[in-house]
């Protein structure tokens, strides 16, 4: 079968039509995963039983396939009376899954901050919350912009998993076209190229952010 450029181009509008869904899922999962991951890391650092438990949860999440999470949330939770829509399941599943990885990234970012920073904050009388928000978090972000960006790209690339829940994202849309026309090469290539473009955009944005964060204040 020959690659039909004209046909490929004709699939672009249909596939691009789902870019909104892909971006919505990716963006909300990036936010969700970052928020949960940061919370996990703070609890883990505080030690005690809660810290141990969260440490175990993080390892557990990282050691299981993302599809298992999506299937569990979608098919098992309803038995316990919790019925999530496909889209919500996808966002929550990706958020939870990547929160484990991001917690590790945050850990590295916080570990790299010299102890004196927290000591100075304490000596000034800052409370735990203010210290975390105004002293620790900004410096952590400077340390981890690059690896965090990598995971954001990973999250983007994981959105096609939501096809198993019939969420209409880009790869699913491409596959629909393929099934209808029996031509796989063109729609899948188009979808792949759009993902490539998005990933490059995110990497560029992260690079700019990193330069801005480090700026004149690089240590």
């Amino acid at each position: 079968m020959q690659f039909d450029v004209a046909f490929a181009l004709s699939t672009v509008p249909t596939i691009l039509g789902a870019i909104g869904m892909t971006l919505l899922v990716a963006a909300s999962s990036c936010v969700g995963a970052s928020a949960i991951g940061f919370g996990f890391e703070l609890i883990r650092r505080s030690g005690g039983w809660g810290g141990l438990l969260v440490g175990f949860v993080i390892d557990f999440i990282r050691a299981t396939p993302v599809l298992v999470w999506l299937y569990c949330l979608y098919f098992i939770l309803p038995f316990y009376g919790i019925r999530l829509g496909a889209l919500a399941t996808g966002m929550i599943g990706l958020s939870l899954y990547y929160s484990g990885y991001l917690a590790e990234v945050f850990k590295a970012g916080i570990d790299a901050i010299p102890n004196g920073q927290a000591e100075a904050a304490k000596a000034l009388g800052l409370g735990r919350m203010d210290m975390t928000i105004f002293v620790i978090a900004p410096q952590m972000l400077r340390n981890i912009a690059a690896p965090m960006g990598n995971y954001f790209v990973s999250i983007l690339k994981a959105t096609p998993y939501l096809a198993v829940l019939a969420v209409p994202e880009m790869l699913g849309r491409a596959f629909d076209i393929a099934s209808d026309t029996y031509r796989y090469a063109e729609p899948l290539t188009v979808a792949g190229l759009i993902f490539l473009g998005l990933a490059l955009l995110i990497s560029q944005a992260i690079k700019r952010l990193e330069i801005r964060l480090l700026g004149p204040t690089a240590r």
């Binding site: 010299p114 004196g116 920073q117 000591e119 100075a120 904050a121 304490k122 000596a123 000034l124 009388g125 002293v135 900004p138 410096q139 400077r142 964060l213 204040t217 240590r219």
Partner: peptide
């Protein structure tokens, strides 16, 4: 009491950001 006590460190510990 801690708030009324100022501390200056060997390594300055200014907030770099």
């Amino acid at each position: 009491a801690r708030r009324q006590t100022g501390m200056v460190f060997q390594s300055f510990n200014l907030f770099p950001h």
